[in-house]
């Protein structure tokens, strides 16, 4: 009995590691950020200028970083959405077993490409193409970053959407076909709507992946902290800011604290996206 309990506790302990880690990370971030919130205060963050190194006027406005992340994430999601969802519909409903065997491994490979490799591809190949296609002065734009991030989000969206589409009960489709609907009508009018909450969850999880992505955007978005909603200007995302500046910042300085504040904002946003996604996932499982 005792032994059984012990094993139970060990298993429970292993299972709750991730909860513990999330709590610890939150605590650590707040511990490092709190001195900034006391002085110079939270109002210093709500500012249009991110200018952490300056001889006369340093400024830690998080607004351009936030809008930068939002712009890149929304663009990437908009780009990934059609490919991801239509791809999932094809693979789960139309493709033959043989085709599926070819598609699936490639999607997995795409999911596994290190983001720094994708970033380098973006810098050397994609940026010049985007520059000449849209006749821009520079290829280092929010749009370039969004295209790369879409590449990374597509596998996530396809895999989870496919699961959702497959779990639509067979009886729904059979009923639709029996009423005389064509295969395509059945897919778009019955199967996809029935799986919709799962597909929404897939897109949300894809977004979660995109907003936290660092290396690829750091390499191709140009990193100018501009508050702009134009896809063809340079943007600086929250993740890129942390990655680029944390390495050399003086320990305990205001700049160091400000980066932790950026980290908290990022974590909270990802947390919310995941919560919403979970809610949709639960809905389609019932």
């Amino acid at each position: 009995m005792n032994k059984e309990n012990l094993i139970k506790y060990i298993l429970a302990g292993a299972a709750s590691t991730s909860i513990l880690i999330v709590i610890l990370i939150f605590m650590f971030l707040f511990k490092e950020a709190v001195p900034f919130l006391k002085k110079p205060g939270i109002s210093a963050l709500i500012n249009q200028d991110w200018r952490p190194v300056s001889f006369f006027n340093e400024s830690f406005g998080i607004i351009p970083l936030f809008t930068g992340s939002v712009l890149v994430t929304l663009l990437a999601t908009a780009l990934a959405l059609p490919f991801g969802v239509i791809g999932a519909v094809y693979i789960s409903e139309i493709a033959s077993v043989y085709e599926r065997e070819i598609f699936k491994p490639f999607i997995e490979v795409l999911a596994g490409i290190p983001s720094v490799v994708i970033g380098f591809f973006g810098l050397v190949v994609l940026a010049p193409v985007i520059k000449s296609t849209f006749n821009l002065p520079s290829g280092l734009t929010a749009f370039t970053g969004a295209v790369l991030l879409a590449l990374m989000a597509i596998p996530t969206i396809i895999s989870i959407s496919e699961d959702a589409i497959r779990s639509v009960p067979k009886s729904y489709k059979e009923a639709s076909l029996a009423l005389g609907a064509s295969k395509l009508q059945t897919i778009w009018k019955v199967t996809v709507p029935a799986a919709l909450s799962g597909i929404v969850a897939a897109v949300m999880l894809g977004m979660g992946r995109v907003i936290g992505e660092t290396m690829a955007v750091l390499m191709v978005t140009g990193n100018a902290p501009l508050t702009a909603f134009n896809p063809f200007t340079s943007v600086r995302t929250m993740t890129a800011t942390i990655a680029a500046e944390m390495g050399e910042v003086a320990f305990g300085s205001i700049h160091y604290r400000a980066l932790f504040c950026v980290g908290i904002v990022l974590l909270v946003v990802t947390f919310i996206i995941n919560l919403v996604a979970q809610k949709f996932l639960r809905k389609y499982k019932i």
Binding site: D49, R51, S54, F55, F56, N57, L123, V124, A127, P128, K131, P137, S138, G139, L140, L218, M219, G222, N223, A224, P225, L226, S234, R236, A240, A243, A244
Partner: peptide, 26 residues
């Protein structure tokens, strides 16, 4: 000691600057 223009693109490494100069005519 004046600040850089806000439009300056901040590159993560010297190699990235070289690459960007090689690609961008301006």
């Amino acid at each position: 000691k004046h600040d850089y223009t806000k439009n300056a693109r901040l590159m993560p490494a010297t190699s990235a600057i070289v690459q960007a100069i090689a690609e961008d005519k301006t």
